[in-house]
Structures are given as C-alpha cells and as structure tokens.
Design a protein around this nucleic acid. Structure first.
Lengths: 339, 339
DNA sequence: CTGTTAGCGCGTTCAG
DNA sequence: CTGAACGCGCTAACAG
C-alpha cells in the first residue's frame, strides 16, 4: 500500500543502499538522484520513521512537556522553541501535564517511547518523576522556568528575586509602606523565589519584614488571585499596594478590584507577565515582564547543543532578566502623596 | 544498553511470543505475568515504539495540528481533547502551524511519518495541503472550528451565523440601527460565516443591509482589531454599536476604546470567546461564548470512532451552538434610550 | 497457554 | 560510487 525503498528500486533499478544514501544526504550520482526524486514523487514516498528510528536509534524529534498548555506564557515559549527546532531539522512533540505530576511522568514515559532525542520540560513541581529513564538512555533534559531538583538537567530561568524586587522598589519608592504579595505556595520554585525576593526587598526598603498576613499563599489560579485579593481588601489594616507574583494572580486580583473595590480604597498593584494586559486594563497596570522570546531561544539552543555536541559536563543554568514596564501613575502612586 | 524482550527472556526463561502477549494484553499465566513484571521492573524495560509500530502499523498516537498555539480557544480545546484521548489509551502529538499553510503541511507530513492513527486539525485556511497522503494511508482526519474544503474530513464546528445573529439581535433589540462588524477576511471560514450571519441579521432587523464601511475586513490579530475599531470611530457617521467576530478583535477593539475613545461617544460592543474577559474588563462586556469543552469532547469522540470503528462512510459534520453571555447594560444599551 | 519462525522498512557494514 | 546481506526489536501466524 504505502511505498518503500523496494518500490523505488523497482522504478529506478538502483539498489536499496543507494536509495538509502540519497535519503540520508550521502553522495549519489546526479543522474541517480534525479531518478530517485522522480520515483519518490510518483509513489508519494515518505520515509518510514519507525524503520529508520529502529535502526538509527534517533528520531530527530524532541519532546516538550508543559505544566499547563492553557497559559500564554508557556505557549509563547513553546511556539518560539518549536520554530527554532524545526529550522534545525527537529520536530517537536508537545504534551500537556495539566498541573499533574502523574500526567507529567506519563508524558515523559510516552516521549521516551517515541525515542525523542531530547526533552524540554516546564515542570509541575520541584521533583520530576520518570527522568531516570531519560538519563539512562542518554537523553538530555532541559528545564524551563523552573529548575529540576532531582537528576541533572540544564535550566533556563529568570532572576525571580530581582523581578519582584523591581516591583517592590517602584512601590516603596512611591512611598508605600504596607505592601502585600499575592503568590502561590513555596512548593513551587518560582513562587518560593518570588516570595524570598519580596521579603528581602521589603526589608531592605522599610527596615522590617512584611506582616505575615500580607504574604499568604493561595492556589495558583485566577480564582486564587481573586480570593487572595479579596482577603487582603478585607483586612483590618489592608495593604496600600499589592504585587502579583504571576499572570493568574494578576488577572484574579484585577477581577477582585473590579468587583469588590468600588467602595474600598483601591490599592496600588503591580502585575506579572503578558504585556497585552497593559493595553486592555484601565488604568494601565505596571507589569513585570519576562523575556519570553529569549527564554525560548536559549532553551532551544541548549537542547540542540546537548544533542549535537557536548552531551557530558556539568548541568548548566541560564539566568535571564525581567523588565518592569511602568503603567499609569495612578496604579502605583500612594494616594495623597504629592504628585 | 536499553532492555529488550531478549533480556526479559534471559531473566524469565519465557519465549518472546509470551512476553509480547503480556505487553499487548493477551492471556498469560499469572505466574508468568509476575515473572515478566519483575524482570521488566529490574531492567527498566520500556517497549520500543519503533519496533512495535514497524510491525503493527499502528502507533496508538494521534496528531493534532493547530493554526495557532498561542490562543486560549485552541489550547483549551486541545487540552480537553488530549485528556479524553489519553483515557482511551492514545497519546497526542501537538504541532503548531503558526498561521502558516506551509508549516501546516510540514506538520501533517511530520505526523504521517510518525504513523499517527488519526489527525485532528484546526486548519489555517479552507484548503489544507498534504491531506492526500493521509487519505491514501487511511488515516482519518477531523477538522475543528473550520471545515476542510478539500478531501473528506469530519468536522466539528459551531453555528457561526446564529452566533453573530444573537449578538446583533441583542443590539437591534436595544435600539441600535448602525451596527458594525469587526472581522477578518472572507478567506477564513469562520470570518466568512460570521459576516454572512451579520449581514442577514442586520437586514432582518432593520430592513436593509449594513453600510459597506461598517463591515471591513481586517487582519485577524489584536492589532487588526485595534486598527479596525479606530477606523470605525473616525468615520463621519460612526456606528453606535460594534460586534467583534473573534477574541483577537475583541481585545484590539477594547484597547482602541481605552486609548482613543475618551472624547468620542463610546459605541456599544459585543465580543467573542474567553469568558474571563467579562471579569477583567470594566464595564463588563457582552460575549458570544463557544462551547469549548463540548467541542473538545465531540472531536475526540469523532476521531476515536473513526479509528476504532467505522472508517468508511460519509464525512460527518457536528454543529454546536454558542451562547450569549450578557454583560453590563451600559455596554450594549443605546445612549439616550429610556432605561 | 506457550514456543518457533518469519518478516515489517530501513541503515550499515563490507566488497566490488 | 554502488550492491548484497544482515539485523534493529517487535508482532503475527502457526504449531504444539
């Protein structure tokens, strides 16, 4: 039914070895190249990746495992990476672990079965199950956004502490003394780092650590941000400013302000990720923006270099930097301060 | 290096056939099952999908090709589908065509090479290149959101005409007579259908077709929505209401209103997709919402039934329905009308 | 229920 | 530069 080398041999009279060489970039006489191309076209020939992979033990395919597919931050990175990889001749298989460590392990298993040449992971948590099998098979692993505690994997991350500090500094510089952080639990690397950065920046600016109730840990979701902001607004001594530790918290906090904040004093707010927000929400919020394009590029480079070059050697960590995009003054100024 | 049946045979004394049966759900004596399980665990054995696929000509894997990965509408559908498929024992390979028909054809080629058992496509345009190869190989194709004009593929779509009509009806019912549509070019199925629905609904309500300058075709992007809305606002006789034909237009139009609309009369607006918007944007917009979860479920069902059952027969089209989630009255009421 | 045997389609030795 | 032969790891007949 579907064409194989044998069919091409039938049409060209060449041997299987020659045909194989043609399809693998070897030296083949011009006349024969033409013959093979013609036959391949006529037959609608397509190399059988299974047979090829079975022999060569390579797939020219990378596996990508995302903690969450439905996240612009993640998909932007993946989309950029896929493009780079395709240019380099690699396909990508994308899997969604939907925040479940179990689904993540399954996906890794699935991808190893597909003989991927490398693995890029935006992990669900600090530890990733199933990586042993990858290491045994010599499959390089790169983690993005969050490093992997177990196993030796390269990583591309941002300086999360400095990211949050830049937000805190804007607020303290505007006179805020009671700043809150909307973040997730410390079990997540980015949340942990951002909380550490937050506490350090607040202490550096005010001389004391933030009050406990100002750095609660909520579920990492829009609802979590909504609930957290709501609790903050209802405190006896509500903060005058709130920093949101990621995109979901930013959305949820904005919703809460929209729905509940009319009669309460509206706190200053700094959000995270997704620059589009700054154009959709009024007044324009200040945002900590991650260099998504560069994250994608560096991650792609890293896998490719591990696959095609130095497989060995210390795990490397690339640290990139965020920038603070300042929004309307009204969103971060201390009410009543001189303008 | 990596374990095979032979290693398991060495440890268990069983034959390759028995081992194969074990891994394929055949009947194997309990004692032998235990033996095999033990050996597999000790060896870190994992089935070689290449060898298996080479023989069986099946991969238990589906290919998914998205016109755009960085789109909540698309990723929500894919995420839901993947979950269903995994439950049914199928893996999914997700590819992003980034709006490029060429990348789409490449992705299809790539997936056929991976011997996918079925293909789910959110196509870039009306025609999809590369499907012939899928049909030749008997790989069922399901298109989502937009039907495929060439080849015979099943489809899951929504009633786009009724979707837009529901928006128009709300507006005409509120007294609007000059309604504009922000939509993309007619080369895109959804845009074409929504424009047709728009014109019909306006004519039905007002007795005449909308003015030509009120239904321009802009680039399908946030910028396109922004530019389109801007042009509408600057008309000599601007519309009193605007319907946005998709999520990008809704965002762009909102941005334009934010940035330019302060001194101009603010038109009523109805958006499309992504219910979160209704909680982030103030005043709360009215939205045409697509049944994403059901789209995902029906698409998954459809591929699976084609793979496991009736491969032949007429191409089927499933049509689902949108609902209108009404927002704040101020966003759709005619200014000056009695409340 | 288990074992033997024969390929699946391709890449890779070697000779020539 | 080309051709013949072998085997990658697994499944599917068939025989027992």
């Amino acid at each position: 039914m579907v064409a194989t080398y044998k069919d091409i041999r039938r049409l060209t009279g060449l041997s299987l070895a020659t045909i194989s060489k043609y399809f693998n970039g070897g030296n083949v006489l011009y006349a024969n190249r033409v013959l093979i191309e013609q036959a391949a076209r006529d037959l609608g020939y397509q190399v059988n990746d299974f047979a090829r992979g079975l022999r060569s033990r390579r797939s020219r395919t990378l596996g990508v495992v995302l903690a969450e597919l439905n996240s612009t931050f993640n998909t932007t990175i993946v989309s950029g990476m896929e493009e780079r990889l395709r240019e380099a001749g690699y396909g990508a298989i994308i899997c969604d672990s939907r925040g479940s460590a179990e689904a993540e392990a399954e996906a890794i298993h699935f991808l190893i079965g597909k003989m991927v040449d490398g693995l890029v992971i935006i992990p669900v948590g600090d530890e990733v199950a199933g990586l042993d099998a990858a290491h045994e098979r010599g499959i390089p692993v790169i983690s993005v956004d969050r490093p992997v505690a177990n196993g030796r994997a390269d990583a591309v991350v941002v300086d999360n502490r400095a990211a949050i500090a830049s937000a805190v500094d804007l607020l303290t510089g505007s006179g805020h003394g009671e700043i809150a952080l909307l973040a997730g639990p410390d079990t997540l690397f980015t949340m942990r780092e951002r909380r550490i950065g937050f506490r350090a920046a607040v202490e550096a600016a005010t001389g004391r650590l933030p009050r406990r109730e100002l750095t609660q840990a909520d579920a990492v979701s829009i609802e979590g941000g909504y609930d957290g902001m709501r609790r903050l607004l209802e405190l006896d001594h509500p903060p005058t400013a709130v920093v949101c530790a990621n995109y979901e918290f930013t959305l949820g906090a904005t919703m809460a302000l929209n729905e509940l904040g009319a009669d309460l004093p509206r706190p200053a707010i700094v959000g995270f990720d997704n620059l589009d927000l700054a154009r959709i929400i009024r007044p324009r919020p200040t945002l900590v923006v991650q260099p998504v394009a560069e994250i994608a590029a560096r991650a792609a480079e890293l896998v490719l270099s591990r696959i095609e070059g130095e497989r060995e050697g210390e795990a490397r960590t690339v640290v990139l930097h965020t920038r603070l995009v300042v929004g309307d003054r009204a969103t971060f100024a201390l009410p009543g301060a001189a303008s």
